[in-house]
Nucleic acid binder design. Structure first.
Lengths: 334, 334
DNA sequence: ATGAAAGCGCTAACAC
DNA sequence: GTGTTAGCGCTTTCAT
């Protein structure tokens, strides 16, 4: 193995000088720097991560806690993972994967064994049992999603409340007076995943405020579930003329089933999807969306994490404003 | 921070004894073990990962190299990631994410800085530029997928060649004489991703062997692409009565488009999907599939990695036999 | 069955 | 602007 001592010897300097060249923590003469960098390249030197971590109490690793459930859309999860990984590398950090099923204990393990400097946590629930643990860890933490009580933790998320409101307002403006929501799977609501909750709230309240009828129905991830969901929705309010779908996994099934029922989009019924834009563009007809900016959120999460590692205080919650993009699936009613 | 010395003091033993209790590398009297374990629990001790790595040259971390492209199905990638993470924890290891876009240099970085003990690499191409690097690394490596020349690296994969053959045989047995393949996106073929190649080969060769016509068409990930793909397929052979879809992302679009064309599944046309079973079950009608066993493969990859870490020789390629599950989307023809 | 102690490779005072 | 050196917390000989 090539060590810092080998490099130092080859460059004719002290090991600490090599260290300082690498860290930039003190000024180095151009000549020395050149020598050292040349030796590093020539020898193919990479600092030993463990040794560095031991000496500096910094691993340059971010732990990313991911959900395993398949009732959350795996595509979006993957988008987050990719975005976080890429952003982390940009800040010269690596990403360690931790699965949500390890629970609070997993967080403690990761922090306790100093295997990561900070944690980014996805799929946060309203009363998430991990929040107290995270607080106790005394390490930088960023939640993607927002618990009911963040207790001072930094959160980044789409403003789902505003998103629900925006969706309804768009439809009301088009003349719709009865709107339906195809929500995430029942399990998502049951465990109080906050984005579902908040969207529903923005949706319902805005509908009330605007004096239009609103009906809400969770929807599991299958064709039958989508069918059953629409059955329920139309049974409860046959007058529904616009649907908001906050469940990408059933976007296809919902559209297919509407066709089945002889309802044409958007002439008979408007459809507004809450999902990554990339997904909405590739549907049978381009869908009007409120985008879920997974890439942006992932990047933002990393940025906030790095800032905390640099000493900035935690606690700032950042909710991204929803952006509605009108495509062809929503139209004027009446 | 709680160190091994704190634990040793609390238990009234030497630090090395604590270490041995943890590693099990020498016998400990029951009484001592009890004392030590109690102290560990009481103090909430976790060994410092960096220190351990430095002293033992073992990080207990597996690097997982994932593709970022969205022309590969993200859902399946996520399934692999989840399976690998879970399996790794079962062997008391963690998973470090490396993105494919870092290229061979990323692999060198990870190995060179001793941040992981072994590598698991996904989305392997026929002439993958990472293979030579992987070989030079001299660390345990497992590829999920198979390059043209593994050069002694361990591979695990579905036997896509056999899968292609199995698909055709199933359809031939049902009386079909002209079959079409909706393949992965053109980009996947272009970069020589091996599973596409091999499936196509098994598909074509078996068709020839059985004297049936076969037509192949890659398909990008959108509704229009699916439409264009079917257009091309039927233009090249209007007699096609069975479709094999090796591209989960367009499963929905393909089925919708067939309906559009007035072709009923399976009475007018049979459809066989190559995808995770979970996906096939939730379609409008349950699809006959050859399953892509992402979970199994992920687990297997970890198992082979751990074995190599334990000293077993590399190089054994394991191809899982395809399993066809007949559901309702394939039927007798003629 | 247990202890003592020498590193593992690096960083960060402390010196000059 | 650079060198010297004392640890960081653990594993693993070498002793006994």
């Amino acid at each position: 193995m090539v060590t810092i001592i080998d490099v130092a010897r080859a460059a004719g300097v002290a090991p600490s000088t090599v260290s300082y060249v690498l860290s930039g923590k003190r000024s180095i003469s151009p000549e020395t720097r050149r020598q050292v960098e040349r030796s590093i390249r020539r020898l193919g030197y990479h600092p030993h991560a463990g040794a560095r971590a031991l000496a500096s109490s910094r691993t340059k690793v971010l732990a990313l806690v991911i959900p395993l459930r398949t009732d959350l859309n795996v595509g979006v999860v993957m988008q987050f993972v990719a975005a976080v990984s890429l952003a982390a590398r940009r800040y010269d950090h690596d990403v360690l994967l931790v699965t949500k099923d390890e629970g609070p204990g997993g967080l403690k393990r990761v922090a306790g064994s100093a295997i990561a400097d900070a944690l980014i946590v996805m799929d946060v629930e309203s009363a998430d049992p991990r929040v107290p643990m995270l607080l106790a860890l005394d390490r930088p933490v960023v939640l993607i999603g927002t618990p009911a009580d963040p207790g001072g933790l930094t959160c980044v998320d789409l403003d789902f409340n505003a998103a629900g409101a925006t969706a309804v307002r768009h439809l009301v403006r088009l003349g719709h007076r009865a709107v339906g929501l195809v929500g995430p799977s029942p399990a998502v609501y049951e465990r109080g995943t906050s984005f579902a909750e908040r969207f529903r709230r923005g949706f319902t309240e805005t509908a009330e405020e605007r004096g239009v009828r609103s009906t809400i129905q969770p929807c599991a991830h299958s064709y039958e579930a989508a069918e059953a969901c629409l059955d329920a929705l139309f049974a409860r309010d046959p007058g529904i003329t616009a649907l908001v779908v906050q469940n990408e996994a059933v976007l296809g099934p919902v559209l297919a089933d509407l066709r089945h029922r002889g309802k044409r989009v958007p002439s008979d019924i408007s459809v507004l999807a809450v999902c990554p834009d990339s997904l909405a563009e590739n549907q049978l007809l381009p869908l009007t969306t409120i985008g879920v900016p997974a890439d942006e959120l992932g990047e933002l999460a990393v940025e906030m994490t790095i800032r905390q590692l640099a000493g900035e205080a935690a606690g700032r919650t950042r909710l991204l404003a929803p952006r509605l993009i009108r495509r062809t699936s929503t139209a004027r009613h009446g």
